[in-house]
Amino acid sequence: MEEELNKNQKNSRRQFLKKGIIAGAGVAIGSGLIAAYVDATATETGEKVKVLTTDGEIMEVDKGLLKLPRVSREESHKGIPGRKFVMVIDLGKCKNARKCVEACQKGHHLPKSQEFMKVYLLQDSEKTSPYWFPKPCFHCDNPLCVSVCPVGATYKRSDGIVLIDNERCIGCKFCMTGCPYSTRVFAWKHYPEFDEDKEPYSPEAGSPGQEGTVSKCDFCPDLIRVGKIPYCASACPMGVIYFGDVDEDTVTNGTETFQFSKLISDRAGYRYLETLGTRPCVYYLPPVDRQFEVERGFGDLDPAIKERYKDTPYSKKNKQ
């Protein structure tokens, strides 16, 4: 009886896989790697490399795919099938170590003056507690930045990611005023860091940057395509940033994996400035059960970075 049941399951799995392939659904069951999606577009070298999936299956992947895939501009408009990405940021754990900012800048070949991830020192009102607030792009489900773009250079994909095509962007900066979260940055000149990246441009990599265009946090779809979480999430020493597929109801910071819905309900997760109606895809866990004093965030900061927070109510109070 038991065996019968298990056998049936196997059959249904097989059937599903067939269906999945036909429908192009690409919900690669039992495979953490979603490299299969990029077969068609990434350059294949013909040389195969064995890689492991999350559940310990070995998969042969073309070696060219192990490099972060740079999909074409057309492909980058489509989104990774069957996925909807979400980020959860645990404010209780952030101590402004700034590793997320640095890893992101390195990964996207950004100059120091351009930060896709910004860390704010916020204090909601006089008597409430200050806290460190890492802020990526919220990849809103009602993205005003996308609505106002006159040329469709910024767009929202089926997987929820809002991307910018720097080869389409005319640099009118309307999206920068449209975004209520000051997420977007502008290339005010050609920064030398842009030249570090020798690969051809892809909106998914967000690199190399281009003078006179707007860029922002992109949830690193190129990393996602090889089964990795974004630079900021994997770089954070405190595991503040969780990332995952919301429809799979799972988020991970690389070491811990949580059921998204349970995490949000247990820890009273919320979205920043919910009243604006932008419907962000980034959730925050309130800064409770702090692991660090706020002061720790000033630890060994670069003086120039420290200077940023001098006008915050917290710093002003400390001075007195």
Binding site: V148, C149, C169, I170
Partner: peptide, 26 residues
């Protein structure tokens, strides 16, 4: 003068999006 990429000005017509107030303005 505000526009970062004047070389891409034709895109306003070629790829214009009706939802954008800039397109309305054009």
């Amino acid at each position: 003068l505000c526009i970062g990429r004047l070389d891409r000005l034709p895109y306003l017509v070629l790829f214009g999006r009706i939802q954008s107030p800039i397109t309305w303005d054009v």
